[in-house]
Design a binder for these strands. Structure first.
Lengths: 197, 197
DNA sequence: CCTTTCATGGAGTGCGTGCTCTAGTATTGC
DNA sequence: GCAATACTAGAGCACGCACTCCATGAAAGG
């Protein structure tokens, strides 16, 4: 008998489709992108598409899960004894760098507006949770060391750092003169001002 | 012959449809909302809908134009000799208050993700422009008086105030514990920290 | 009264969509 | 080489959508 085809090849194809979808979603949004458009972008037939992903929605969820995992990995890689405030600032800089890729920025913007679909909403909530849970301990430690203000709980301070990141992303989309490269330094400065004791 | 119908009644109907659409768009997004759903919400038939708006897109543009006008009016109503920094902070507080209405928040989120449609993008760009042009003079005056930092041009400082507002809106959507009422004061404080000399 | 115009609902239409089916081709194990 | 399975393409399908058409009602001149 024959058998389980090369899993590497399988995974590579999956990633190629994900990559094509990312490009399409970033430009025309989730609902505005047809599976046919993704197939065209990826250079495959629709049969192939649905061989790798049972539905269009499952593809979106796969991308979201990928991003969530990446966030998890980023925080898992931080050494426990690092300087807390540096980690917070490093994450902000890291996120800003990712947003330099307009595909990422466009995708995030497109996806956070897929509303009323429970599976997507829980995936987004999970992503937000992982981010909050990854960042908050460092904020708390920084607070314990007196590096950041103490008039708000770590939970709120963390949320406000994410406010800056969310807003940064939004401005990139709507303001031509506002570029990730040009404003990255100001972003880190803004975080410092926000957290300063 | 008969005649030009009562324009008041006409306008009222239009506003009722706009109101229904706002509700629907806020919950399920633009693409996720069918004209049938808007008709159901407004309690009208589809014939009536297309009697008032030629297309679904034109309805969206009408809502956007309405919001842009409101922003224009808000700034037009500020007296020229007012304290500049107070005006900036007042606008921030005003915007935060509007976002207390979850329909507004949801609508804005839904609409900024309608991508790849030129008419919508230009309408959004106009809205952003009106906001920037309304706010920037006050920031500039505040800077001239030494009320705000001078290491960045007024244009950038204004953009960063809008970053905070955009981010505030985004957090409201994704973070259950982050409420407009609870965080409004922190928002104004964040603006002060951002602009402080 | 009658006539003209706007207002309204809802059945109907054509099209684009996500997805399925099937038939053919590569790739694997023996 | 052969059989069995995975992979691939694309024609086709059912459905939901934005939008149209038409019949009817209501209000305002004359």
């Amino acid at each position: 008998m024959a058998r389980t085809v090369d899993p590497q090849r399988h995974e590579a194809r999956r990633l190629a489709i994900i990559d094509a979808a990312l490009t399409c979603f970033a430009v025309t949004g989730y609902a505005g992108t047809s599976t046919a458009a993704i197939c065209r972008q990826a250079g495959i037939g629709s049969g192939t598409f649905f061989h790798y992903f049972p539905t269009k929605q499952s593809l979106l969820l796969a991308i979201l899960a990928y991003g969530t995992d990446e966030t998890r990995r980023w925080f898992a890689a931080r050494p426990d004894d690092a300087d807390p405030l540096s980690i917070v600032e490093a994450y902000v800089a890291h996120a800003a760098e990712e947003m330099s890729d307009p595909r990422i920025a466009g995708f995030v913007r497109a996806v956070t507006a897929v509303m009323g679909v429970p599976e997507v909403e829980t995936a987004l909530a999970l992503d937000a949770r992982v981010l909050q849970d990854g960042l908050e301990p460092w904020v708390a430690r920084a607070q314990a060391r007196g590096q950041v203000r103490a008039d708000l709980p770590p939970r709120d301070l963390t949320a406000w750092v994410l406010v800056l990141l969310d807003g940064f992303l939004g401005r990139l989309a709507v303001d031509e003169a506002f570029t990730a490269e040009g404003q990255r330094a100001t972003l880190v400065d803004a975080v410092r001002r926000l957290l300063a004791p």
